[in-house]
Amino acid sequence: MRLSLLPVLMSLLALSVAPARADLRITRDHGGYVEEYKAKYERIRDRKERVIIDGICNSACTLVFGIVPMNKVCVTPRASLGFHQAYYDKAFTFGMKVISYEGTSDLMAYYPPPVKDWLARNGGLTPEMKKIKNGMDLWKIVDPCPEEFF
């Protein structure tokens, strides 16, 4: 009896080239360009990966809440979120912080109701950073991670 090795080899090849799932652990993210974060989080969402916020997630980093499904995002006790109005790259505004009202509106359009509710209760998006640290306010937005993620 002859056995074909082709099915076995094809299975092994499929395993070796299959993309590995990986969690994104955010520990010190101060934000950046909104469009880059949108693309990054869309890739994570499409790959059905999980996001663990285990430290600072400020500015454009917070777009995670509007792009990655909330059941794929959690926070550890070290998590903190920071929100502010969008502004143009200072390299193009001679070092001055110039608010982008269009960009701010775009951010708000992505945020889910729990984020919008917290922002509304705390004066909305302003030029100054508004922070949420571990506790009830944060847990109203996103679930705490299981202990194995700490």
Rank of each mutant, 00 (worst) to 15 (best):
K48A: 13
L107V: 04
G82Q: 13
P112Y: 08
Y101M: 03
S59R: 11
V75N: 11
R50A: 00
P69Q: 05
L107P: 05
I56F: 03
P113Y: 12
F65K: 04
P69Y: 03
Y88N: 01
N122C: 08
K72R: 15
Y87N: 14
G95W: 09
S100D: 04
A109T: 07
Y101H: 06
C74Y: 05
I67K: 08
R43A: 15
L119C: 07
S100L: 01
Y111Q: 08
G82W: 13
H84Q: 13
R121V: 00
N71C: 00
V75Y: 11
V73E: 06
M70F: 00
N71W: 04
Q85D: 06
L81R: 05
S100T: 02
I44C: 10
K116A: 12
A86W: 12
G66E: 07
I67D: 09
V73F: 11
V68N: 04
D106Q: 02
I56V: 15
F83D: 08
T76P: 04
A79G: 08
F92T: 14
L119P: 05
T62P: 05
V98C: 01
G103P: 07
V68P: 06
F92C: 00
K40N: 06
G95E: 09
H84W: 07
L107G: 04
S105T: 12
V73W: 09
A39M: 11
L63F: 14
A91P: 00
F92S: 12
C74N: 04
Y87L: 01
P69V: 00
P69D: 01
N71M: 01
E49G: 13
T62N: 10
W118A: 11
F94E: 08
I52F: 05
N58K: 07
N122M: 09
V73H: 10
L81C: 05
K48L: 10
T62R: 05
A109N: 13
Y41S: 07
R45V: 01
C61R: 04
R43M: 13
L107S: 05
F94M: 05
F65W: 12
K90F: 05
V64C: 12
E36L: 14
N58D: 15
N122K: 10
D46C: 04
S105D: 14
L81M: 14
Y111N: 08
C57I: 10
Y41A: 07
P113N: 11
D89S: 06
P77V: 00
D46T: 09
F92A: 06
R43I: 06
K40A: 08
F65L: 14
K90H: 07
M108C: 03
V51S: 02
M96K: 11
D106L: 02
P112N: 13
A60K: 08
N122Y: 10
G55W: 13
T62S: 10
D89V: 00
A109L: 02
A109V: 00
F65T: 09
V115Y: 12
D46E: 15
D117W: 01
K97I: 08
P77D: 10
A86E: 09
Y87G: 10
V68C: 04
V75H: 12
T104C: 09
R45I: 02
D117L: 06
T76C: 03
P112L: 11
V51G: 03
L119H: 06
T93M: 00
A109Y: 01
R50K: 15
K97C: 00
E102N: 03
D89E: 09
A79H: 10
D54H: 04
K72M: 11
I52K: 02
V68Q: 06
P77W: 03
A91Q: 10
Y101V: 00
